[in-house]
């Protein structure tokens, strides 16, 4: 489903809008409404985050959303339930740290697929870290979205591109997740370096927080990932978050 979505975006010359939200945040019911709302507002892909107790790659906004979701009882299985209930009609990526995925057992990939997920992204499972488990995920029913960082050397980029599917998530800057006012210099060069060894669509995230930034990223990459800014908006109101996605969509298409 991810492949078809990116193919149709490519044909129509549009940029993908990839939206991250934490499952169970701001609460279970609102989370469901949020997933459906942002799909209707024009998200092309939704990354649904499994809250984890120790999110080392995340800044304060996503940390807090995870903590409050956990306190309200959200789990990986709960995340699958949110997806199954929402059925938003756009591709869903299960976004998780490795430990909850391991704890969920061997059949978790199939269960995620049954719940409507078409991809998986594991924050702390970089390419080559654990070939056996990577193969398990790679051989499963979900596209395996891999990350490229600004520190990743060119040879490693090629390797990551070979091991990934769906799309490649390019982290645009050093550091944890969190909205930033500016875009990193050198982004265009990094995308071009990656493009030299990668045929998958390239989506850029980490820090994108305004429609203008989204447009700027869209001018160099195939897609834009918006996370912390959306989670921060959702913490205030679901309607506000949905409106934010609508603004991003129209800016990207404008």
């Amino acid at each position: 489903m991810l492949a078809e979505r990116f193919a149709s975006l490519r044909t129509s010359g549009r940029r993908a809008l990839v939206c991250y939200v934490t499952a169970g945040h701001p609460d279970r019911g609102a989370s469901l409404a949020l997933v459906q709302g942002i799909a209707e507002a024009g998200a092309d892909v939704i990354e649904l985050g499994v809250p984890f107790s120790d999110p080392v790659a995340d800044g304060p906004v996503i940390q807090q959303s995870s903590q409050s979701a956990l306190e309200a009882g959200m789990t990986l299985d709960g995340t699958l339930d949110v997806a199954a209930a929402a059925r938003p009609g756009v591709p869903l990526v299960l976004f998780s740290y490795l430990n909850p995925v391991l704890a969920a057992g061997r059949d978790v990939l199939r269960r995620a697929s049954d719940a409507g997920f078409s991809g998986i992204l594991v924050t702390d499972l970089p390419v080559g870290a654990d070939p056996e488990r990577e193969q398990w995920i790679g051989d499963g029913p979900l596209a395996f979205v891999r990350l490229v960082a600004p520190t990743t050397p060119a040879v490693r980029m090629a390797e990551i591109a070979r091991h990934g599917s769906g799309f490649v998530y390019l982290i645009s800057r050093l550091g944890v997740t969190g909205a930033r006012a500016d875009l990193p210099p050198g982004l265009r060069e990094t995308v071009e370096r990656l493009r030299a060894s990668c045929t998958l669509p390239i989506c850029v995230g980490f820090g994108v927080s305004t429609p203008d930034q989204a447009v700027a990223v869209g001018s160099v990459a195939d897609g834009v990932v918006v996370g912390s800014a959306l989670v921060a908006a959702a913490a205030k109101s679901v309607d506000g978050a949905v409106g934010f996605v609508r603004d991003l969509r129209s800016a990207l298409d404008g």
Binding site: D124, L147, A149, T151, I160, G175
Partner: peptide, 23 residues
């Protein structure tokens, strides 16, 4: 990740970190 280092002790150990830290 070529190195002389022992990355695992039996099944344990490894490098489960965000991609940014691998280099």
């Amino acid at each position: 990740s070529e190195s002389a280092m022992q990355e695992r002790f039996g099944a344990f150990g490894g490098r489960y970190v965000p991609e940014t830290l691998i280099p």
